[in-house]
């Protein structure tokens, strides 16, 4: 199933290194804990942002973001509400236009199917069955042959194959978000932007979804950018945590811990504490 989801994308080096991994081990993270730039086996898009600014009227939300994200990295963006983290994500995803500055995706020209967004809400079409909702993610390939099969495979990937003929209204919140993930994955994106996709889920579903996100990221080697206000989630998932303050990157912390990371481990807690301290100001977080 992992094979089928690896849709050949025109300009990337195919994921040769991963063929050594049998399907059974597909869920096991085999990657090294890495902050090392540009892993050779990745097909993710690298991202370079130069002096990015965005204002809404008089309100300057982003004041000159400088950022380089190597291909295939998992980056979490944290910050207080209104710090501009969601705006940054919307600019990267092409949902809004920057006031000034540039966002470029390496040397290769990115197709619109290469960049996908997962929103805080599932945003499924209530009048389309689960399978049809996943097919929406194929973009221009929707009408191509095999669209059905690709959507089915994407649903299998998120563990919802048996729900494909259901209406979204009968699914639970976590299941809806998984369909939304399948929709985002089905085109084989090279960059996936997550806008607090787990914010509305209950604690247990949330942890299950975090594992699922990590698994598909390892499986499909896209570049992941996760906006979240949950610092624990950020350090559990990301290679690198960016703290945004006043429209600028205030901190750039690499999380050099092996995967799978054990939730509640001392290292994670220490890291979380120090980032929280940064966010809330000195002396407020333990």
């Amino acid at each position: 199933m992992q094979q089928a989801l690896r849709i050949p994308v025109s300009s990337v080096e195919e994921t040769d290194g991963k063929d050594a991994i049998g399907p059974a081990e597909a869920f096991r993270p085999v990657r090294k804990p890495s902050v090392s730039p540009a892993k050779p086996e990745t097909r993710g898009l690298p991202l370079v942002i130069r002096d990015l600014r965005k204002s809404f009227g008089d309100n300057q939300v982003l004041r000159g973001i400088e950022l380089e994200i190597p291909a295939g990295q998992f980056v979490a963006i944290v910050g207080q509400s209104g710090c501009g983290k969601s705006t940054l994500l919307r600019l990267i995803a092409g949902l809004d236009k920057p006031t000034s500055g540039t966002i470029s995706f390496g040397d290769t020209a990115a197709r619109s199917e290469d960049i996908r967004v997962m929103f805080q809400e599932p945003r499924l079409l209530p009048w389309a069955r689960v399978l049809a909702n996943a097919e929406v993610g194929l973009g221009r390939d929707r009408k191509a042959a095999g669209a059905h099969d690709r959507a089915k495979q994407a649903l299998e990937e998120v563990g919802l194959a048996e729900k494909r003929d259901q209406w979204p209204s009968v699914l639970s919140g976590g299941q809806k978000q998984r369909v939304a993930l399948a929709r985002a994955l089905v085109s084989g994106p090279r960059l996936l932007a997550f806008d607090e996709p787990l914010g509305a889920l209950d604690a247990l579903t949330r942890i299950a979804m975090q594992r699922l996100l990590e698994r598909v990221w390892i499986d499909q080697t896209f570049t992941a950018i996760l906006v979240t206000h949950d610092v624990a989630e950020a350090v559990a998932l990301a290679d690198r945590v960016l703290v945004i303050e006043d429209g600028r990157v205030a901190e750039d912390i690499s999380v050099d811990l092996p995967r799978p990371r054990r939730r509640g481990s001392a290292e994670l807690a220490t890291l979380e504490g120090s980032i929280l301290g940064q966010l809330l100001g000195p002396g407020t977080a333990g």
């Binding site: 949902l95 945003r123 079409l125 929406v136 973009g139 929709r183």
Partner: peptide, 24 residues
């Protein structure tokens, strides 16, 4: 939000009408 989703996923105006606006 659904209309924005449709645009992000590359629906043309016709598709957007047929798949999102009209059923809605």
């Amino acid at each position: 939000q659904l209309i924005e989703m449709g645009r992000v996923y590359g629906m043309t105006d016709g598709e957007l009408f047929r798949r999102v606006i009209f059923p809605g």
